[in-house]
Nucleic acid binder design. Structure first.
Lengths: 496, 496
DNA sequence: GTGTCGGCTTTTCGCCGACAA
DNA sequence: TTGTCGGCGAAAAGCCGACAC
């Protein structure tokens, strides 16, 4: 598959993580993550995900600044959610705007087994970027031509190489790389009264080259994993008004884009029934490719835990994570005020943003009034009682709890411990969602019992969980390397 | 229908040509045409066209820099060409790049009658822009920050208001508008030794604002039809490497775009059979919208004349128009070396670029080796014998010849004179194209006999042909105003 | 700790005719 | 007829500490 010409790409699909084409540069995953923000949690290649075409359709409509209207044909055989294997995930950044996005290659699957769930959970975990990282929102002085960039003290001390304070004034040359591997050179000087860190020569070229304005943000990252000291500094940007890619309307009409999204998914789902191997005589019509999938492609384990654990009811209290101005996270509290289809005609009984919510704080106007169940952090502790290994933020940070594998083994019902039963997720969901279910969901999702794995223990997966990670490899890059997934029945797990 | 947010739009769909929304400014058709180049000939709203989804698919592939590959499902019911009514055509220009494109709203039709053909022919004619118009390719000096713009003498004298040569030096302020109605102000001065016309103050803002480089072109137009003298100057650009809109790959995957193109057309064609009126309970699923359609949407009359007139055979000599550097046209001569499907699997027996050609001149490397029949100007005169009203360039410039209507009336066979018979075009095509036809084309095109118009004479259309055009209205804008098309059977032709 | 400003130097911009192609 | 250049004055960029919040 060729890469789109106007983006840098980081392909993380083979055992060898460095796959370099001419224009196909490897994007640094930490920098990508910093620019994407802390709420974006990408699933790992080789794991299972849940894809919501409704969300995809919404995204297309938003980026075309157009409502979804009646021209779009209905795809009656297209479910509101598709369980898929994520074959490949690549990171990208628009060459014009530096906007970051991912590309995923998905294959719909009629069923998944217990190990798929465990694998998804396992590779979703160790996710916090451990890189030194700093974010600053640019001021008017930073972006004017009158001067340079005022570096926050903590950022300079944590990220930059130490200055030689014997110099008068102390100064050095810094070299930083952006997402496209472009090199930017700056003069870093410590001067003024009171003393402060500044970037002077070179800074204005960066501002004009990236077309930055006051209010936009820059990310400074100290990249632990580069051997070459000169290449340890990374530099990313994020624009103030994160325009949802309003570009591109000139190639295809909005309706055609909509139809393309839905037809591609429906086609892949339909052809999956005849799928026998990854290379089906060169015709890969059981797969489809998504751009910018981060909102509507959910790691299977995240979805699973949300549906199984969150007992949704009217009036339920919950918390939800939002991003702060400093690129951190903050919880806001709210109450579920309704459960209803966002689009009762096209997407009946869809879980996509079917929860209507109210927010506690007065500034709630900025926050959405419809959310999906996997976005919630539950407020009560029903769910900690049933799934004790989970922390409140569902990041499984509680080391004293049980692992998902242990918990599943603990269950009395052996079939539940060893595989997902047909309709299991749906019956769970149906029991807790008032407005959920009906026979349509059960038949559409068509979860099939896969007996191939029912005899095996989880010991090998437990070993995988304990594998030491090489210190010279980025944990995030590590996470995104696919395991051997094409033949799960052989339980081959490679260790690089 | 909302307009894409990143483009200015000129809507030419109502009897009143000025339809102004907030961001929906009217694009000047002469300026648009100058920027598009002399080879682009748009059909008029309300006329019939032939749409080649294969060409559309090619365009999408090219703009994504990707080959058409096997992921795309086949749409067995989608013909290689669709006869359509062009309901609406709007002119656009990308706000970022100023690249011009059109948007068309099409409705597939199972049949068309004789008047549709005549109307298409009629509104295709008076097309030569009669506006004063000049094009210059920018030099290094023009685009450097060291100086201004050197105006070619003829351009200054023909396009600019006359200078007061009593001044020392003669100078004035010029105000020009671009495609987006942005105003640019320049100082025009006549100085130097030898004397020459220059644009100085204001020019560099234009160069940097439009991001122009040496090799790009500017178009200066004196707009006859603006009353306000200050607004008579129009200013367009065209970039040297006309990138085929390589943008936009970040919203949708290439495959989804492809599928969207084909599925939208197939859906509209299928739903057309149930179509009863223009507003079908608010569901317009018998129409579809194309972006950038100029290459693969052909005016019906142009297609018709090419298929009926050009006797294609191996070794046939022909000429074909190409654009020159100065935005004029030039004919190149060539020979037909083969007739074969460009894509024999997906698009069997398609007329889209099914002619393989060789070029006489050594510089032929730049020219395509596959063309479609409607791109040819025939070299021999077989075709002038059969259709004497046509000039060699098929522009019907020969006033001494017969009009299409007269010629049709002249024919012995009255049914041929008054309407297009079922399968008529195909049987004609089949008789001249070696590799053409088979029962598939005949049934797919499904040309139906429309008897409603068979009793009427052509006198009213002949009158329309002779209507004087108001001097204050642009002929091109005139051409693009739709006639009353929704009920052809009433033969209502309005005169504004 | 850091955002903005006045003062001042350095660099670039941009108008001019000379000259040549 | 018009593309490029050196000269030169004007304007903008850009480095500095002062000062304030």
């Amino acid at each position: 598959m060729k890469m789109p010409a106007n983006s840098s790409g980081s392909t993380l699909t083979s055992a060898n993580p460095v796959e370099v084409g001419e224009k196909n540069r490897l994007i640094n995953p930490e920098l990508w993550q910093a620019c994407a923000g802390p709420l974006v949690n990408l699933p790992a290649a080789g794991t299972h995900v849940v894809y919501f075409p409704q969300g995809h359709s919404e995204q297309v409509a938003a980026s075309m600044k157009k409502d979804v209207d009646a021209q779009i044909p209905s795809y009656p055989n297209l479910q509101s959610k598709l369980f898929c294997i994520l074959h490949k995930i690549t990171l990208h950044a628009d060459t014009e705007t530096d906007e970051v996005y991912a590309q995923m290659t998905l294959q719909p699957v009629p069923s998944f087994d217990r190990e798929a769930l465990l694998r998804s959970d396992l590779l979703m975990k160790a996710h916090k970027p451990q890189t030194e990282f700093f974010c600053k929102t640019l001021t008017a002085s930073d972006t004017s031509t009158h001067g340079g960039f005022s570096v926050p003290r903590r950022a300079a001390e944590k990220i930059f190489p130490p200055l030689d304070f014997n110099m008068q004034p102390p100064a050095q040359e810094l070299v930083a790389r952006d997402l496209h591997d472009n090199v930017w050179t700056f003069r870093h000087i410590y001067r003024g009264q009171p003393k402060r860190h500044l970037l002077t020569t070179g800074w204005s070229l960066f501002v004009s080259g990236k077309r930055l304005f006051a209010g936009d943000s820059v990310f400074l990252i100290y990249n632990l994993y580069y051997r070459d000291e000169k290449q340890q500094l990374l530099l990313g940007i994020r624009r103030a008004n994160r325009q949802p890619a309003n570009l591109s309307s000139s190639v295809l009409s909005s309706d055609s884009m909509h139809i393309g999204v839905l037809a591609a998914a429906a086609h892949a789902a339909a052809n999956n029934s005849t799928f026998t191997g990854f290379n089906n005589q060169g015709k890969n019509d059981h797969i489809f490719i998504l751009q910018r999938p981060s909102e509507f492609v959910i790691p299977l384990a995240k979805y699973y835990k949300a549906v199984c654990s969150n007992q949704i009811s009217l009036g339920m209290r919950f918390r939800m994570l939002f991003e702060t101005e400093e690129s951190g996270t903050r919880r806001y509290m709210g109450t579920i005020t309704g459960i209803s289809d966002l689009d009762g005609v096209r997407w009946k009984n869809s879980q996509w943003r079917n929860l209507q919510v109210g927010w506690d704080e007065a500034t709630a106007g900025e926050r959405r009034n419809r959310v999906s169940i996997w976005e919630l952090s539950p407020f009560d502790n029903i769910f900690k009682r049933t799934m004790p290994w989970l922390g409140e933020d569902m990041s499984m940070k509680d080391p004293g709890g049980l692992s998902l594998a242990q918990w599943m083994n603990m269950q009395q019902n052996p079939s539940m411990a060893n595989q997902i039963q047909p309709g299991y997720l749906n019956s769970l969901a149906g029991s807790v969602l008032q407005n959920y279910g009906g026979p349509q969901m059960l038949t559409q999702n068509n979860l099939q019992f896969n007996s191939l794995n029912s005899q095996r223990s989880t010991s090998q997966l437990d070993q995988l969980q304990k594998l030491p990670q090489p210190a010279t490899t980025s944990p995030l890059a590590m996470m995104m390397q696919p395991q051997q997934i094409t033949d799960l029945t052989q339980q081959t797990v490679r260790q690089n």
